[in-house]
Deep mutational scan, measured.
Amino acid sequence: DRIFMTRTEALEFLLKAHQTAVDKIGHPSHKQTPADHAAIEALDRLLLDVRARRVDQFQINASAAQIIVTD
């Protein structure tokens, strides 16, 4: 599946995904793992790359739809 978004929409989408990941590892019942921190770092890099126009398409994980940034 493909989803087309403007750059602004894609950045909002990534910010929400980032916040969800941060909230998940901050929850008291969740045991933090290196994979959790790696996922947040990957989202940080992706946010910067989309914002800087170095990336025009991405996929958060293998089961997610491919996001295509349109400007």
Rank of each mutant, 00 (worst) to 15 (best):
T33P: 05
A17R: 03
A38F: 11
T33F: 06
D71M: 04
K16Y: 07
A64H: 08
A42I: 14
D56C: 08
R45E: 05
L15Q: 14
E41H: 12
L47R: 07
F4H: 10
T20D: 14
R54D: 04
R7V: 11
R2I: 15
I40C: 04
E41N: 07
V22A: 07
H30V: 08
R2H: 15
M5S: 00
F4S: 05
E9I: 03
Q19D: 05
Q19N: 06
Q59K: 08
K16F: 07
M5E: 00
T33L: 08
L46Q: 01
G26F: 14
D71R: 06
P34Q: 10
A17D: 01
K24N: 10
E12Y: 06
I40H: 05
A52P: 00
I40D: 01
K24Q: 10
N61L: 08
P28N: 08
A38G: 06
D36N: 06
V69D: 03
A62E: 13
L14Y: 00
P34H: 09
L46M: 04
D36P: 03
D23I: 10
A64L: 08
H30G: 10
M5A: 01
H18F: 15
E9A: 08
Q59R: 11
T70N: 08
R7P: 03
I40S: 02
L11P: 00
I25Q: 06
H37Q: 13
P34W: 09
A42E: 11
H30P: 05
L11V: 09
V55D: 01
I40R: 03
Q66L: 15
P28G: 10
E41G: 06
N61C: 06
K31M: 12
P28A: 11
I3P: 01
K16V: 09
T6W: 02
K31T: 13
R45F: 04
Q57Y: 11
F58D: 00
P34I: 09
K31C: 05
I25G: 05
A42Q: 12
L15A: 14
A65E: 08
T8E: 12
A65K: 10
L11G: 01
D44F: 14
A42C: 06
L15V: 13
E12G: 05
A38I: 11
A65I: 15
A65M: 11
F4Q: 06
F13T: 04
A52W: 08
H30F: 09
L48Y: 04
H30S: 11
D1S: 01
D44W: 15
A64G: 15
R54M: 07
E12N: 10
V69F: 03
D23G: 11
R7S: 04
H37A: 12
V50N: 00
R53G: 15
H18S: 04
E12C: 07
I3Q: 05
I67G: 01
S29C: 07
R51A: 15
H27D: 14
A64M: 13
D44A: 15
A52V: 05
L11H: 02
R54G: 03
L46C: 02
Q57R: 14
H30W: 11
F13G: 01
M5N: 00
Q32L: 14
T33H: 07
D44N: 15
F58C: 01
L46W: 02
D1P: 09
V69P: 01
V22M: 13
I25N: 05
D1E: 13
L11S: 02
H30T: 08
R2A: 12
R53S: 11
T70E: 10
